[in-house]
Lab assay of single mutants.
Amino acid sequence: MIINNLKLIREKKKISQSELAALLESSRQTINGIEKNKYNPSLQLALKIAYYLNTPLEDIFQWQ
């Protein structure tokens, strides 16, 4: 199971779900699903999230 700190990191950087979704060329619903652990992002999307949040991938997503 993958757990994530996306919501915590996103809020700390003062970025809304909609703003992050626009940067990622994704939907706000996708970001919401990832944050609620209802959806696991593809590797490509996970890497883009890490890039746009300027945060190491392993700080956002962790195996448990």
Rank of each mutant, 00 (worst) to 15 (best):
K12A: 14
A46G: 07
I34G: 01
I60C: 03
Q64W: 07
A21T: 03
E25P: 14
L24P: 00
T30Q: 10
K7G: 07
A46S: 05
I34P: 02
M1C: 13
I34T: 01
S27N: 13
N40P: 13
Q44S: 13
Q29K: 14
D59K: 10
I15C: 06
D59R: 07
I2A: 07
F61E: 00
Q64E: 14
E11G: 06
A21Y: 01
E35P: 01
Q17I: 14
M1P: 11
K12Q: 14
L8Y: 11
L53M: 05
I31G: 01
E11F: 06
L47I: 13
I2E: 05
K14P: 02
W63E: 02
K7D: 04
L6Q: 03
K38M: 14
N4R: 01
T30A: 09
P41M: 06
K14W: 06
Q29A: 14
L47T: 11
R28M: 13
E58H: 13
L45S: 01
S16V: 03
E19C: 11
L43D: 03
L47P: 00
K7Y: 05
K13I: 09
Q44W: 10
T55N: 01
E25W: 07
P41I: 09
L43I: 12
E11N: 09
S26L: 15
S18V: 11
P56R: 09
D59C: 13
N4T: 03
N32S: 13
I15N: 01
Q44H: 13
L23P: 01
Y51K: 09
L45W: 03
K12I: 09
Q62H: 07
P41S: 01
S18F: 10
K12E: 12
L23K: 11
K13F: 11
L20G: 00
K48W: 06
I49P: 00
L53D: 01
K14C: 11
E58K: 12
L20H: 00
I15A: 02
E25I: 07
K12G: 12
L20Y: 02
E19G: 10
I31H: 02
L57E: 01
K48R: 12
Y39P: 02
L23Q: 09
E19K: 13
L8H: 14
L57D: 00
E11C: 11
M1N: 05
S26C: 15
L6T: 02
E25S: 13
S42Q: 05
K38D: 11
A46N: 01
K48L: 09
E35C: 05
N4L: 09
L57F: 06
S42M: 04
L43K: 10
K14A: 10
L20K: 00
A22S: 12
S18Q: 13
E25N: 15
K7S: 08
L47S: 09
L57N: 00
L20D: 00
P56L: 06
N37P: 02
I49S: 00
K38F: 12
S18T: 13
S16K: 08
S16H: 04
P56I: 07
L43F: 13
K13T: 06
I34A: 02
Q17D: 03
T30K: 10
E19F: 10
W63C: 06
P56V: 07
L43Y: 14
I49F: 02
Y52R: 04
L57R: 01
N37Q: 08
E25L: 10
E35W: 03
T30G: 04
K13W: 08
K48N: 06
Y51P: 00
L23D: 05
K48E: 07
A21F: 02
S26Y: 09
Q64K: 13
N40V: 15
K48F: 05
I60N: 00
Q17K: 09
K12C: 12
F61A: 00
S42C: 06
K48M: 10
Y52K: 05
N37G: 15
P56H: 06
F61M: 02
N54I: 06
Y51R: 09
N37D: 08
T30V: 15
S26G: 07
N37F: 06
S42D: 10
L43N: 04
A22T: 12
A46H: 02
Y39N: 07
L43W: 13
N32M: 13
R28F: 09
A50I: 05
Y52T: 11
N5S: 04
L24V: 15
L6K: 01
Y39D: 05
P56S: 08
W63K: 03
Q44G: 12
K38L: 15
A21K: 02
M1V: 09
R28G: 07
E11L: 13
L45Q: 06
E19S: 11
I3G: 07
S26T: 15
I9E: 04
L53G: 01
Y51I: 07
R28W: 15
A21L: 04
Y39W: 12
I34Y: 02
P56M: 07
Y39M: 12
K14H: 11
Y51H: 12
I49G: 00
I49M: 05
Y39Q: 11
A22Y: 11
L8S: 15
N32V: 13
T55S: 08
R28N: 08
N40I: 15
D59N: 09
I34F: 04
N5C: 13
N5H: 08
I3S: 08
N4A: 03
I3Y: 07
Q64M: 08
Q44K: 13
A22G: 11
Q64N: 13
K14N: 14
I3L: 14
R28S: 13
G33W: 14
I2G: 04
Q62R: 11
I9M: 07
W63P: 03
P41A: 04
K36A: 13
S16I: 05
A22D: 12
Q44F: 09
L53V: 03
L8P: 08
S18C: 11
M1S: 05
S18E: 13
A46R: 05
E58R: 11
S27F: 05
I2V: 13
Q44E: 15
A21R: 02
I49Y: 00
L8E: 15
N40Y: 13
S16T: 13
L24Y: 00
E58I: 09
A50G: 03
E35S: 03
S27Y: 04
L23R: 10
A50L: 04
S42L: 04
L45C: 09
R28D: 10
K13G: 05
L45M: 12
I3T: 11
I60Q: 01
L24K: 00
Y39C: 13
P56N: 08
L24R: 01
N32P: 02
Q17S: 05
N5I: 07
Q62P: 08
W63A: 03
N37T: 03
Y51T: 07
S16Q: 05
P56C: 08
S18K: 14
L20E: 00
N32W: 08
K13Y: 10
S18I: 11
S27M: 04
Y52W: 11
S27K: 09
M1Y: 06
A21E: 03
A46Q: 06
Q17F: 04
E11P: 01
I31D: 01
I2M: 10
L6S: 02
I9N: 02
L23N: 07
R10F: 08
